[in-house]
Each structure stands twice: as C-alpha cells, then as structure tokens.
C-alpha cells in the first residue's frame, strides 16, 4: 500500500492539477488577506469558499483521477499486489496531494501574514482541519462512486449529484423540516442532522471558533454549548473519521467484485 501511495502521490504532486489548485488557493487567500488586511475577517470569507470548493474539488478530482488511472490500475493489479492495498494507496495518494495543495495554498499566505503569532491561530488551524477533512471525505466518496460505476458518465453524474446533495439539497430538507416542526424542540434533531452532513459539521466547527454562534440567542447558545464542549468536538471529529472510513469501506467492497 505504501508503495502505491508513494507512486500515485509522486505522480500527482508533480501534475499540473496540484499546482493549479495550490495556486488557486494561494491567489484567493492572498487576495482576501490583502483586501481585508485582517486575519480573522479573511478566515470568515475563506470559510465560505472552502465549504463550497473543497468538497467539489475532492469529489471531482477524485472521480477524474480514478477514471483516468484505469489503465494504471490494470497494470498494477496484474502485479502481486492486493486490491485493497492498491486502492487504499491510490486514495491516500490523491487525497493527501490535494490536502497538501490546500494546506500550502492557504498556509503560506497566512504564515507570511504572521498568523502564528496572532490570536487567529486557533481559527486558522480549525479552518485547515475542516478543509482537509472535507477533501478527505469527498475524495473517499468519489472513489466509492467511481468504483461502483463502470460507466464514466454515470459516475460523473452521480458524483455531481452527491456534491449537490450535501452542499445544498440536504440543508434544504433540513430547513424545511425545521419549519414544518417549528413548534417542537428541535435542538437535538438539529445536532444530529448536522453531524450527518460533513459540510454542515465542518461549517459548524469553524463557526464555533469564530464565536458567532454566541450571538444567536437561546438556541445559538445551546448549539454553542454542545458543539463547544469536549463531547461536541469529539463527536465532530468522530463524525469526520466515520465519514472518511465508511466510503472507503464501501469502495473496497465494490472493488473486491469489480472486473478490470
């Protein structure tokens, strides 16, 4: 697995995609830092961008990479290698190279602006963590979708739908149910619903750090208390881990029966 990881990582980190992606993150970050000249405000603006871009990048590049390396898969699966190891290696290679593009693209400008000695350092690290988690999760989802769908067009379609679902449709259903059942206490439901969508819990995690939830009356305080506690942070981290592991598990299951 480590060997596969090494090679796909080596291949990807040198590809123009990683470069373009890193450059994109860097340009956006520098732009925001330059315009706002305030680390915390730049972090708030970046949060919206990252919540939108990272899942999309993860799932799209995941799908593209998977389908593009079909022949590579064929070459390597004909070698004395376990399928599980091959796919795990591929997944890690891709997701970690994307994470590195992301971390460097964001990190370099922030470091140059002295984030480490500012009071925004925790916010910044949370943003990094949430952004990286989103990439890992959506890469895993992409690999699962691609493994389960031999047809490239179908795979792409499903991946886009999946992203659309988590980015917006899910929240739409969430909000509708909040409005339909507005006369019931909905705090617990909301907390559960948040943990079931990686984009939502990443957003909540960053917002907690930004301390805006305190601004929102009773319910905001309830959420703040829950997600701000060790239990809450542990739950979010746990949810993130489960959200990475379960698509990988599904992917490996699909890969076991797959013909190449």
């Amino acid at each position: 697995m480590l060997k596969i990881f090494k090679y796909s990582f080596q291949d990807l980190i040198r590809s123009k995609w990683s470069f373009i992606l890193g450059l994109f993150y860097m340009a956006v970050t520098f732009g925001l830092l330059y315009m706002s000249n305030d680390l915390s405000r730049a972090i708030v603006s970046l949060m919206n961008i990252i919540l939108f871009i990272n899942p999309l990048v993860g799932i799209m590049l995941g799908i593209m990479y998977y389908y593009n390396s079909r022949d590579f898969s064929e070459l390597l699966l004909a070698q004395p290698i376990k399928r599980k190891d091959y796919f795990l290696g591929q997944y890690l290679g891709l997701s970690l190279s994307l994470v590195i593009s992301f971390v460097l693209g964001l990190g370099v400008p922030f470091l140059l602006y002295g984030v480490l000695v500012s009071d925004a350092v925790v916010n910044f690290l949370t943003l990094m963590f949430a952004g990286s988690a989103l990439v890992l999760i959506f890469c895993a989802l992409a690999f699962w979708v691609a493994t389960a769908n031999e047809n490239k067009i179908k795979g792409f379609g499903k991946a886009i739908l999946l992203w659309l679902f988590f980015a917006i449709l899910y929240d739409g259903i969430f909000l509708l149910s909040l409005l339909v059942f507005e006369s019931y206490p909905l705090e617990k439901f909301s907390i559960a619903a948040t943990l079931l969508n990686p984009i939502d819990f990443s957003r909540v995690l960053i917002m907690l750090q930004l301390d805006v939830s305190l601004l929102f009356g009773y319910t905001g305080a309830v959420f703040n208390k829950f997600f701000g506690s060790y239990v809450g942070i542990l739950l979010i981290t746990g949810a993130a881990v489960i959200w990475v592991i379960s698509p990988i598990f599904m992917m490996l299951r699909a890969a076991k029966r797959k013909d190449f």
Partner: peptide, 20 residues
Amino acid sequence: YIVTRSDASIILLRSLLVDV
C-alpha cells in the same frame, strides 16, 4: 426572517443554501 420563525435554523448560518 426564517430564524425569527424557527430558532434552530440558525445552525444553517453561512451555508450555501442560505446564500442562495
């Protein structure tokens, strides 16, 4: 307006849906 109607919906603050 929505948050005034349903407190709990504040959890969706800054989501893409809300922007839309």
